[in-house]
Amino acid sequence: MGIAYQAGPDPRIRRGADGGRDYFTAEELERAAWGFLQKGAQVGLFHGPDATVGAATVVESYIWRGKDWDLGDGTVVRKGDWLIGAILDERAWQLYKSGRITGFSPQGQARRITRRSTE
């Protein structure tokens, strides 16, 4: 079980690896989570080629609607976050146990929207 994507900006992240800082609103994230299920909930490894698809079987996918939930390791699940539960295949399980896999990272396409001030 893990956070697939959190709603809104994470105050701990100032800039992503690509130099930008993108995020979804809770409403946008919910639509993305639904689309993931509608398209077959495929899971691969390391954003790699299609040969890694099937690394896990998604058995739960939902939007957290409860109070903030502190997992005790510095991670807090907040209202609107997308959670996924998955059963890993043997290779993915070994990678997880060795620390090479530490979470989910959705892969897909999006359109960047630049928000303008309303002032």
Rank of each mutant, 00 (worst) to 15 (best):
Leu83Trp: 06
Arg14His: 15
Leu29Gln: 07
Ser105Ala: 08
Ile101Thr: 01
Tyr23Val: 02
Ile84Phe: 04
Pro9His: 13
Arg14Glu: 15
Lys97Pro: 00
Glu90Asp: 06
Arg111Gln: 14
Gly99Leu: 02
Gly8Tyr: 10
Gly72Asn: 08
Ala7Ile: 06
Arg12Asp: 14
Tyr96Arg: 08
Phe46Asn: 12
Glu28Gln: 15
Gln6Phe: 06
Gly54Gln: 01
Lys67Asn: 13
Trp93Leu: 14
Tyr96Cys: 03
Asp81Ile: 05
Glu119Ser: 14
Ser98Trp: 05
Gly2Phe: 07
Lys97Gln: 15
Gln107Arg: 10
Gln38Tyr: 06
Glu28His: 13
Gly2Ile: 02
Glu27Met: 05
Gly20Gln: 15
Arg116Ala: 11
Ser61Met: 10
Glu30Asn: 10
His47Gln: 09
Ile87Tyr: 05
Ser117Ala: 14
Ala51Leu: 09
Ile101Pro: 00
Asp73Gln: 03
Met1His: 12
Gln38Leu: 15
Gly72Ile: 12
Ala51Arg: 13
Arg14Thr: 13
Gly99Ala: 03
Lys97His: 06
Gly80Cys: 07
Asp18Leu: 05
Gly85Ile: 00
Thr25Lys: 09
Phe36Val: 04
Arg91Phe: 08
Asp50Cys: 06
Tyr62Trp: 09
Glu90His: 12
Val59Pro: 00
Ala41Lys: 00
Lys67Arg: 12
Gly80Val: 06
Val53Thr: 03
Asp22Tyr: 15
Ser117Thr: 11
Lys67Ile: 10
Tyr62Cys: 00
Thr52Cys: 07
Arg91Gln: 12
Arg21Trp: 15
Thr75His: 07
Gln38His: 08
Trp34Ile: 04
Val76Ala: 05
Tyr5Trp: 15
Leu88Ile: 13
Asp50Leu: 09
Phe46Asp: 12
Arg14Pro: 12
Glu60Trp: 02
Gly66Ile: 04
Asp81Ser: 11
Glu119Asp: 15
Phe24Val: 06
Leu37Arg: 07
Gly54Trp: 02
Glu28Arg: 08
Glu27His: 14
Gln42Val: 04
Met1Leu: 06
Asp10Asn: 15
Ile3Pro: 07
Thr102Gln: 09
Ala55Met: 04
Arg65Val: 15
Arg12Phe: 11
Arg15Ser: 12
